[in-house]
Amino acid sequence: MFFHITLERNMQLHPRHFGPHLRDKLVAKLMKDVEGTCSGRHGFVVAITGVEDIGKGLIREGTGFVTFPVKYQAVVFRPFKGEILEAVVTMVNKMGFFAEAGPVQIFVSNHLIPDDMEFQSGDMPNYTTSDGSVKIQKDSEVRLKIIGTRVDATEIFCIGTIKDDFLGVINDPGATA
């Protein structure tokens, strides 16, 4: 789920930037440092939308660098265990399939795909029901439930399931609708 939250960060700035454009420099550096990063606690920082407050700077002894506490607002994407969302399938193999929901990757193991869906290999590997009415392949949109998250230093990885009521394929790119 996407959130708009307020975050804080201590920014270190080199003395050469001190001058009338100090604030601009600080904001530009903040965007460069933070956007696109990921932490286990707040998830992926998608975009900074505003800077709320820049506190008083503190000179660091010995280096001349100044640390500013910066309060800013950002759009973040944070997946939660138990959350149900839509995702786009990126890869299918006999172990299961991978899907993406924005910046996060979700793996759905074949144990968590309904039993009536069988793996079909070929140049477009897919999972299909025996009557062929439902098919999961690359680029399908699926609704899935996140059942586990693993947090890395720079990434969040999720495990999902489609073996529950109201989960599964939403549209099928191969079908002529």
């Binding site: 307020t6 944070r78 265990k81």
Partner: peptide
């Protein structure tokens, strides 16, 4: 953590959630 029971942490509960 369990979104089904709305256990998503106080910080996120208080924040603005967006569609």
């Amino acid at each position: 953590e369990n979104a089904a029971e709305l256990k998503i942490g106080e910080e996120f509960l208080k924040s603005k959630c967006l569609m």
